[in-house]
Measured scan of single mutants.
Amino acid sequence: VPQRAWTVEQLRSEQLPKKDIIKFLQEHGSDSFLAEHKLLGNIKNVAKTANKDHLVTAYNHLFETKRFK
Rank of each mutant, 00 (worst) to 15 (best):
V1Y: 14
V1D: 10
P2C: 14
P2Y: 04
P2I: 07
Q3G: 06
R4V: 05
R4M: 08
R4G: 07
R4Q: 08
A5I: 15
A5E: 15
A5R: 15
W6T: 06
W6R: 05
W6F: 05
T7C: 10
T7W: 04
T7K: 03
V8W: 06
E9P: 04
E9Q: 05
E9W: 03
E9L: 04
Q10A: 05
Q10S: 03
Q10G: 03
Q10T: 04
L11H: 01
L11F: 02
L11E: 01
L11C: 03
R12Q: 14
R12S: 08
R12L: 15
R12P: 03
R12E: 13
R12T: 11
S13K: 03
S13P: 02
S13H: 05
S13L: 02
S13Q: 05
E14R: 14
E14K: 14
E14G: 13
E14V: 10
Q15M: 09
Q15A: 13
Q15E: 13
Q15C: 12
L16Q: 03
L16G: 02
L16E: 01
P17Q: 12
P17K: 12
P17A: 09
P17G: 09
K18H: 08
K18A: 15
K18F: 05
K18P: 13
K18G: 10
K18Q: 07
K19G: 13
K19W: 10
K19T: 14
K19C: 15
K19F: 09
D20S: 10
D20W: 05
D20K: 13
D20H: 08
D20R: 13
D20Y: 07
I21R: 00
I21F: 02
I21V: 07
I21Q: 01
I21W: 01
I21P: 00
I21E: 01
I22F: 03
I22C: 02
I22N: 00
I22G: 00
K23M: 10
K23S: 12
F24H: 02
F24K: 02
F24E: 03
L25R: 00
Q26H: 07
Q26A: 04
Q26I: 08
Q26L: 07
Q26F: 06
Q26T: 05
E27P: 00
E27Q: 11
E27Y: 05
H28Q: 07
G29L: 02
G29C: 05
S30Y: 02
S30D: 11
S30A: 10
S30N: 10
S32R: 11
S32L: 09
S32T: 11
F33P: 00
F33G: 00
F33Y: 07
F33K: 00
F33A: 00
F33E: 01
F33H: 01
L34S: 01
L34Y: 01
A35V: 09
A35L: 12
A35W: 15
E36P: 02
E36N: 06
H37M: 13
K38Q: 13
K38C: 15
K38P: 01
K38N: 09
K38I: 04
L39K: 00
L39H: 00
L39T: 01
L40G: 08
L40K: 10
L40R: 10
G41C: 05
G41H: 05
G41D: 06
N42R: 13
I43Y: 10
I43D: 06
K44Q: 14
K44M: 15
N45L: 14
N45C: 15
V46Q: 04
V46P: 02
A47V: 15
A47R: 14
K48H: 13
K48S: 13
K48A: 14
K48Y: 12
A50Y: 07
A50I: 14
N51E: 13
K52H: 04
D53Q: 07
D53H: 07
D53P: 06
D53G: 07
H54C: 13
H54W: 10
H54E: 12
H54V: 10
L55T: 02
L55S: 01
V56T: 07
V56C: 06
T57P: 02
T57A: 11
T57Q: 12
T57E: 13
T57N: 11
T57V: 13
T57L: 12
A58S: 07
A58H: 02
A58Y: 04
A58P: 01
A58L: 05
A58V: 05
Y59R: 01
Y59D: 00
N60H: 07
N60W: 06
N60C: 13
N60G: 09
H61L: 12
H61F: 09
H61Q: 12
L62K: 00
L62Y: 02
L62C: 02
L62T: 00
L62F: 04
F63W: 06
E64A: 09
T65H: 14
T65S: 11
K66E: 08
K66W: 06
K66D: 05
R67T: 07
R67K: 10
R67A: 12
R67M: 10
R67H: 07
R67V: 06
F68P: 02
F68N: 02
F68A: 02
F68D: 02
K69C: 07
K69L: 05
K69V: 06
